[in-house]
Design a protein around this nucleic acid. Structure first.
Lengths: 336, 336
DNA sequence: CATCATCATGATAGCGGTAACATAATCTGC
DNA sequence: GCAGATTATGTTACCGCTATCATGATGATG
């Protein structure tokens, strides 16, 4: 590796002091045109690039935003939904010259380290369990962060999420309106507030339409194809068999459909399946998946924008944002 | 936010010098048991966490490994394959107390900045185009990095990849052996060396089995469902229609199958489809996808291990590693 | 108990930047 | 042409940590 070029080398070559070089490269205010030119020439000639650590140390800012997903890494990335949110975050961050640091720290609250050790200036927390004590610590330390899911009531944390309740309401109502009566649900982990909301909506619709709530028709699965597959098999053993299933995540719905097929059932003729998320992938499976679209990309954008406002010491007018969900009707639900 | 606790505060409380604190926290050699205890108590009491930037600056090591995927962000994460590799990398990195910094810098070679500005100590480059000039720069600057795909001949860079040629050979031979004669290929971007190898293998098999090579049966698609869908539609317009398609990526194969269905064709009865990658998802689509499994996780592990060896100034005995591919027979290819 | 090796700790000086203040150079208006 | 404002640049110190070398304390040895 070639020797390191520091700001002093540039200063020497340009015949100015280090601080002048620093000014030219940063503020861009207060520098004579001629000096600026000499400095920039020297920078180019020496192929100088400021050392990030040194700059962070001096400015007390790292220039990094953390994206924290306190889950196992495979789980995170295997769900394309997360990656859409990430895309939104990245784009906003980039336009503000922030870099994004993704962490999937599963064990303990190790992500708190990132704040304590000053790696990041702020963070976006995704898919956080409501039992996660780390969030509460961050909250009390008044550290800048935004969540992409709701958190416990009573904590005035900032978050953006799809309107989970409304979305699930739409999904289950649609099943009822297309003539289904024995409706099962494959929910996500109930440790996620968003999943609890979807479950509440499910119950609300049954109640509203005078259908008895049968707890044995509600099961919980991780957001993976495999889990959806397993749980669907379980549901299909119920007597009488459900005529529709509301699956709280598209990836799990894909597994569920396959399980139904494996048992010799046709979707949607024998059993209807509706998903949640609205992944692009859903169009390409058979049958194309009816689902609730949540604006994942917009969620990322909004979260990043909120965070950047906080970092810029702006006060947020609306600390919690609910984005609209949208029912996308394709072919996996039988029309009456 | 609470005021920052520095090493000096700890030193004062423990009644020692800062350097002693540093020693206790790092080397762990040379420190009287009693001193160590006092220091650790002070650390705990003050809730001290060393500042990462300061440490990086002093040690000239950042403790970060870069994972660089010079592609658009959505493209990267929408393909679950990448995320499996990432998982392997992350796990190894973690066990060596390195953090992973993922970058999807699409435009120019901006990822080089990460080296120049000392954000990362080394990097793993994924899915790099053979026209990417950044790699050549890194190569010349003798920076520590490992690729997860082959690169141009003549550059002795380190890489790990599945044996693309062998894998494709197995796939196409299998199609021939199951009685297919008019075999099309939906390849990935030809800018990727791995895709070129798969294409060469495709041609080699045709040649070996005395089947005429028809360039109009080979098309190129991005690694997305949508692209697979579009390109399949295109192929289905060829006369006579192909009886099998080798798709160089599972995600594209999923789109391709859906396109065939949309046209009223049955898979595999009317047309066979074989994929490449071996994503878990492939088991859950209809029909379950016959494909070539590449050991994605192992690829990540191996790449990270190689990089860490280089960083530890070890010489690599084998600078380029080919991992074996494995044919996974499911239901999307018609048996003779 | 003096001598030398060994271990524990400290003083000093950076790492490569920038903030804060000081000073020199230039510009303005009369 | 000069006071006062404005702009451009430099000096100094410090961000928080650690490497290097020096020093003091302890222990082994004859």
């Amino acid at each position: 590796m070639k020797p390191d070029v520091t700001i002093k080398d540039v200063a020497r070559l340009a015949g100015v002091s280090p601080i002048t070089v620093s000014r030219v490269l940063n503020n861009s205010t207060n520098a004579r045109e001629e000096t600026r030119k000499r400095v920039l020439e020297a920078v180019k000639k020496l192929d100088y690039h400021p050392n990030r650590s040194a700059r962070s140390l001096a400015t007390r800012k790292s220039g990094f935003l953390g994206v924290i997903i306190p889950q196992k890494a495979d789980y995170v990335f295997e769900n394309p939904f997360h990656t859409l949110v990430l895309k939104g975050i990245s784009q906003v961050a980039e336009s503000y010259e922030y870099r994004v640091l993704i962490t999937t720290a599963a064990r303990d609250n190790s992500y708190i380290q990132m704040f304590r050790e000053k790696w990041i200036d702020g963070a976006i927390l995704m898919s956080v369990s409501r039992f996660d004590t780390g969030v509460i610590q961050l909250y009390h330390e008044q550290v800048p962060f935004v969540m992409t899911c709701p958190f416990l009531e009573g904590f005035d944390v900032h978050w953006v999420d799809v309107d989970n309740f409304q979305g699930a309401l739409d999904a289950v109502r649609y099943l009822v309106e297309t003539g289904h009566r024995r409706i099962a649900m494959i929910n996500g982990p109930s440790t996620l507030v968003s999943c609890r909301l979807r479950h509440q909506a499910y119950k609300a619709v049954l109640d509203e339409r005078g259908i008895r709530y049968d707890p044995s028709l509600v099961v919980e699965a991780d957001f993976t194809e495999a889990a959806g597959y397993d749980k669907m098999q379980e549901l299909l053993r119920r007597e009488p068999r459900p005529d529709a299933v509301f699956v709280a995540a598209d990836v799990a719905a894909i597994g569920a459909i396959q399980a139904a097929r494996q048992t010799g059932l046709m979707v949607p003729e024998d059993i209807s399946v509706i998903g949640f998320d609205g992944l692009p992938l859903g169009q390409y499976i058979d049958p194309p998946l009816t689902t609730v679209l949540q604006p994942a990309y917009e969620k990322g954008v909004k979260a990043a924008e909120m965070l950047l406002k906080i970092l810029g010491d702006e006060k947020l007018d609306i600390p919690q944002v609910k984005l609209p969900a949208q029912l996308v009707i394709r072919k996996s639900v039988k029309q009456r």
